[in-house]
Simulated scan of single mutants.
Amino acid sequence: MGTVLAIANQKGGVAKTTSVASLGAALAELGHRVLVVDLDPQGSLTFSLGIDPEDLHVSVHQVLTGGLPAQEAVLATEDGVDLLPATIELARAEAELLTRTGREQVLRAVLEQLVDDGVEHDWVLLDCPPSLGVLTVAALTAADGVVIPLQCETLSHRGVSQLLDTVHDVRRFTNRGLEVWGVLPTLYDGRSTHARAVLESIPSTFELDVFEPPIPKTIRFAEAPARGRSILATARSTKGAEAYRSVAGALVERAARPR
Rank of each mutant, 00 (worst) to 15 (best):
V37R: 03
L39P: 00
L39R: 03
L39T: 05
L39C: 06
Q42F: 09
G43S: 12
S44R: 03
S44C: 06
F47S: 12
S48L: 08
D52Y: 06
P53Q: 11
V58T: 15
V58P: 02
H61K: 07
V63A: 11
G66L: 07
G67P: 13
L68N: 05
A70Y: 05
A70K: 07
Q71G: 04
A73C: 09
A73R: 01
A73P: 02
V74K: 07
L75S: 12
A76G: 15
E78I: 02
G80N: 12
L83R: 01
L84C: 05
P85E: 10
T87F: 13
T87C: 12
A91P: 02
R92E: 15
A93V: 00
E94Y: 14
A95T: 12
L98C: 09
T99Q: 14
G102F: 01
R103E: 02
E104M: 10
V106N: 02
A109T: 01
V110P: 02
Q113Y: 00
V115I: 08
G118D: 09
V119R: 14
E120F: 07
D122I: 06
D122M: 11
L126E: 04
C128L: 02
C128Q: 05
P129R: 05
S131T: 11
G133L: 02
L135A: 10
A138P: 14
